[in-house]
Simulated scan of single mutants.
Amino acid sequence: MNNVAVLHITDNGRKIADRLLELFPGAVISKFRPDIVDVLWKENDAIIFIMAAGIVVRAIAPLLKDKKSDPAVVVLDEQGKFAVSLVSGHLGGANELAKEIAGILGGEAVITTASDVNNLPSIDLWARDNDLIIENWDVLPLVGTRYVNNGGLRVYCDIPLALPPEFLRVSDPRFADAIITNKRDVYAGSPRCSITGEGCSTEACRVKGQVYLRPLNLVAGIGCNSGTPLDEIEAALQTTLEEHNLVFSSLLSLATIDIKGNEPGLRAFADKHGLTLQVFSTADLNTVAGIEPSEVVIKATGAIGVAEPAALLASGDDKLIVPKQKKGNVTVAIALKTVRSAELGVRNGE
């Protein structure tokens, strides 16, 4: 935790707060006032309250947004007997924080998240640790409840990725609780259902409520004319992905030739979506085998191509999943990046 605030009410609470400096030397310790909680909420990764839980609940209730952005909240009694993980137990780190505090104070961590008390891996933490983006957070509570009730999570995964024992791999996405794919429609091309006679995309014969986990494994090679605006680059890439049944949320990075590295529209597009932009020299691009040379590109840059070889160099792979697509002033090619699994190490994203 980088920024931690500790709030107390009594003198005994202050003594506990001072002991917490062993864990968080830079923590800001303040006497509790309802009006300062709002400021601390915005500035800190975690807030530790040493007081009754009821006071804390009333103070933070208007500030709660969601588990992806709320700071970790841990509540302690003023004797340090119990450290209660109250808010953002998983992604925010409150569960681990409560355990660390209990260890320092000789108390007991109180963890109430269902997966933890049932000794099951947390879906959101496992997704984060494996660079997977949860697409439909609204479905996660339903899937999580089913997971705890069943003692296992049925997972369809079309990339090489190690699953914990509690995640049960299934070969058909219809029967999955969680689907790991960069495909926009994982059911595209599925045979018609023998029961309903409909395509599986009708949801007539699949598990109700499926959470999608998107791997960050798409690399887009981009070539563009000078002065091409952000909107045109964005539209070209979006269209290319849609036409090839791929999702934008799986996009990891962009790649281009070095002379386009400071192209305003391309740079603005990368910044807007938080994407890294890798650039390669003409010499580097010309080392890539299997590229059909473009006379137009050779004349303009000296490189045999831009979008295709840049995508391959940035991905570390030797083949494209989408060859170059010309969209107005923009050329796009897509390759798969190697995927890091927390348990497997580095594997190819085929």
Score class of each variant (00 low, 15 high):
residue 190 S to V: 09
residue 39 V to D: 09
residue 251 L to A: 11
residue 224 C to L: 02
residue 58 R to M: 05
residue 215 P to I: 02
residue 331 T to D: 13
residue 144 G to H: 07
residue 162 A to L: 01
residue 330 V to L: 11
residue 318 D to Q: 15
residue 5 A to C: 12
residue 332 V to M: 09
residue 189 G to Q: 09
residue 197 G to I: 04
residue 26 G to W: 09
residue 206 R to N: 14
residue 289 A to H: 04
residue 299 K to W: 03
residue 170 V to E: 14
residue 89 G to T: 02
residue 246 L to S: 11
residue 198 E to G: 11
residue 320 L to D: 10
residue 73 V to P: 10
residue 217 N to S: 04
residue 337 K to L: 09
residue 288 V to C: 04
residue 189 G to W: 12
residue 257 I to T: 11
residue 123 I to R: 04
residue 253 S to F: 02
residue 289 A to R: 10
residue 157 C to M: 08
residue 350 E to P: 14
residue 335 A to R: 04
residue 268 A to V: 03
residue 170 V to C: 09
residue 210 Q to C: 07
residue 257 I to L: 10
residue 63 L to C: 09
residue 113 T to F: 00
residue 64 L to Q: 07
residue 212 Y to F: 11
residue 196 T to D: 12
residue 167 F to I: 03
residue 74 V to P: 03
residue 78 E to D: 15
residue 130 N to S: 02
residue 12 N to Q: 15
residue 178 A to Q: 07
residue 77 D to Y: 02
residue 253 S to M: 09
residue 76 L to I: 12
residue 125 L to H: 00
residue 146 R to F: 11
residue 13 G to D: 06
residue 84 V to N: 10
residue 234 E to P: 05
residue 133 I to M: 05
residue 306 V to F: 14
residue 303 A to L: 08
residue 218 L to F: 00
residue 187 Y to C: 11
residue 226 S to G: 02
residue 7 L to A: 08
residue 141 P to R: 05
residue 142 L to D: 13
residue 210 Q to V: 07
residue 338 T to W: 10
residue 233 I to V: 13
residue 55 I to D: 07
residue 58 R to F: 01
residue 169 R to H: 15
residue 79 Q to E: 15
residue 298 I to W: 13
residue 83 A to K: 05
residue 172 D to K: 14
residue 199 G to S: 11
residue 108 E to M: 13
residue 294 S to W: 06
residue 19 R to C: 10
residue 144 G to P: 01
residue 1 M to D: 13
residue 237 L to K: 03
residue 35 D to Y: 14
residue 266 L to R: 06
residue 195 I to K: 07
residue 206 R to T: 14
residue 232 E to A: 09
residue 102 A to S: 12
residue 74 V to N: 11
residue 125 L to S: 01
residue 105 L to G: 01
residue 280 F to Q: 08
residue 210 Q to S: 06
residue 31 K to D: 00
residue 31 K to E: 07
residue 292 E to V: 13
residue 140 L to M: 12
residue 97 L to K: 05
residue 155 V to R: 06
residue 11 D to V: 04
residue 126 W to R: 00
residue 98 A to P: 01
residue 56 V to T: 14
residue 6 V to T: 11
residue 319 K to C: 13
residue 48 I to P: 10
residue 275 L to M: 02
residue 163 L to E: 01
residue 281 S to T: 15
residue 199 G to E: 15
residue 50 I to N: 13
residue 284 D to V: 10
residue 260 K to S: 11
residue 63 L to H: 13
residue 63 L to Q: 07
residue 82 F to I: 14
residue 147 Y to V: 10
residue 87 V to T: 10
residue 231 D to S: 10
residue 116 D to H: 01
residue 188 A to W: 13
residue 248 F to C: 12
residue 163 L to I: 01
residue 166 E to V: 01
residue 151 G to K: 04
residue 298 I to H: 11
residue 205 C to M: 08
residue 77 D to G: 03
residue 334 I to T: 09
residue 241 L to T: 08
residue 310 A to N: 09
